[in-house]
Design a protein around this nucleic acid. Structure first.
Lengths: 333, 333
DNA sequence: CTGTTAGCGCTTTCAC
DNA sequence: GTGAAAGCGCTAACAG
């Protein structure tokens, strides 16, 4: 049905090896034949079958990207970073979203391996052990994003989550807040855990106890909303709430206001991530920014570098700095 | 390096055809050998090479998805729809974002063809001619989303854009508005054009002239912002503004308020799409909803169906109904 | 039930 | 400079 290299060979009256070489600009082929064959290929509507090529070259020019949730604007931005860098280097990306489910992650990991992607960039849902064990001894390079694995041999690019939590809390503390609650996402998310650590340490360094037990749910607006409702009903009203990320923070604000309280007049609210909507004037969420697109871009750079030098197994680790973004959901007291 | 079917055959002392059959649960193989071989495969860490399989079966179990902008929350939602349906049916998706650039679209189309994807779902940036000509006579099924091509032979799933525009405008009209401006996105986007048509027809049916010349830019918040600034400076202040989509509407609101006007007290603002953030209480954007996830899901269904019955070339067309979502950015006058 | 064999479309030695 | 031929890892007739 579709035209192959053989068809062109026949039409051009050359061997099909010649066609292959001409099409890939092999230096041995005369300019004349090259021109002739390329023209022919175009006229006949030839599309190279990369599948067949990959079988030999062992390179698919595609990189797998696994993220937990495409619906949280944070991830599309990192995806954009990897995609654009990948595109510029002739790669396309296989996108996999896991919905924070570890089984989906595993299935996708297998699928990507089977599909012979040249490299994998993954923002793990929750825990990395299965990923790492899956790739022990494997030759597909992997880089983690948004996450720093315990295993020292892994490459990753992530924002310093601990610092995110610390920075946010410290800002609140400096504003005079003493009753600061933390609304987290998934309980066993390492990012969340580290952000929480930062929060706790900041409190500690100000000589403050942990007044509110940490609350966990999902990384969804609705979850932030529900958790906050619960918090407000069963506890002293905090003067400030730090959310595990911006999407959560949006839910927090919703709940606080629905409870009859004002943000920031009665309760200050702070997020982490700086998703694009946080800057919308009606929201003006004070938050700690992560360089989202940059994360993706760096990850793509690293994976491509690893693809190009497979013998070099030394891990590449990038920890990026968060940045405090002061807007209008926090006030000093 | 990696273990193949032959290695297993050797280890199991059978021909490698047997291994292939056992692994794919061929009925001819005895349960016993199957079990033995499967165990062996697992123990040896066998990963099937789908590339090799694809070369024969001509099926890659992947579908290409081309969208203009992953940063507009609208598209991730449709992407999620296709992804989840694809996943459930054993497909993975190759994501391509074009940034509204037709050259990127073309390059991706070629790449997807080369990579032998089984089908392509595309939300065209602006114009479909190159896509259609690219696939004339080709055997890769294509379904358009968010867009209805002129060519009657094409499959697509889209919301009725004309109706979106009409519905939104009619609502504003019923609220008593007579001076309604339209802030559009890309000039040659057919969705935008149709929404604008709906707007114009609605005005007409109320006997109202087109008081404001249509304004175009990009489908970005910033563009909505800038266009609105321009509108407000050089024209009579409209009592209502219809934006070509929600992201634009956010920019419109920002500009209006920065201009010293209140939404909806002085100017009503309406969007189209109903992105998730539109429902956030501080925004409460009145808009016309599209069934985003549904669009993606249907598109995936259709493409899979087309993949499964390649002889049937009859186009499948789904036009979905928009739904008016009344929130708080419009008031009656 | 299992083995033999051809071949998918391409790249790549090795000859000439 | 070009051709012949092997083979990537797998599936699918065709035998037996």
């Amino acid at each position: 049905m579709s035209v192959t290299i053989k068809d062109i060979a026949k039409a051009a009256n050359v061997s099909y090896a010649t066609v292959s070489r001409a099409l890939s600009d092999h230096p041995d082929i005369s300019e004349e034949t090259k021109k002739k064959i390329k023209k022919l290929a175009k006229d006949m509507g030839y599309t190279p079958n990369i599948i067949a090529r990959s079988l030999i070259t062992k390179a698919t020019k595609t990189i797998g990207l696994i993220i937990p949730d495409i619906t949280n604007p944070f991830f599309p931005e990192v995806a954009q970073g990897v995609e654009s860098h990948a595109y510029d280097n002739g790669y396309t990306v296989l996108l996999c979203t896991t919905n924070w489910q570890i089984e989906r992650e595993e299935r996708y990991l297998k699928a990507l391996k089977s599909k012979m992607v040249d490299g994998i960039i993954i923002a793990p849902a929750v825990d990395d052990s299965h990923i790492i064990s899956n790739f022990n001894g494997g030759d597909t390079p992997v880089v983690f994003v948004t996450y720093s694995p315990d295993d020292p041999d892994c490459s990753f690019v992530a924002t310093d989550d601990y610092k995110c939590g610390y920075m946010a809390t410290e800002y609140l503390l400096k504003l005079g807040h003493k009753n600061i609650a933390y609304i987290g996402g998934l309980e066993n998310s390492s990012s969340d855990r580290r952000r929480f650590e930062g929060y706790r340490e900041a409190l500690k360094s100000y000589g403050l106890p942990l007044r509110y037990s940490p609350m966990h749910g999902q990384f969804k607006q609705m979850s932030g909303y529900e958790l906050t409702k619960e918090l407000l009903i069963y506890n002293d009203i905090p003067t400030a709430i730090l959310a595990g990320n911006d999407v959560l923070a949006l839910g927090v604000i919703q709940a606080v206001e629905e409870f009859g309280l004002k943000v920031p007049d009665n309760v200050s609210v702070m997020g982490i991530d700086d998703i694009s909507f946080a800057s919308f004037d009606k929201i003006s969420l004070t938050t700690v920014a992560q360089p989202k697109v940059k994360i993706g871009q760096l990850a793509a750079e690293i994976i491509i570098q690893k693809i190009n030098s497979p013998q070099d197994k030394t891990p590449i680790k990038k920890i990026l700095e968060p940045r405090l973004i002061i807007r209008r959901t926090c006030r000093s007291i």
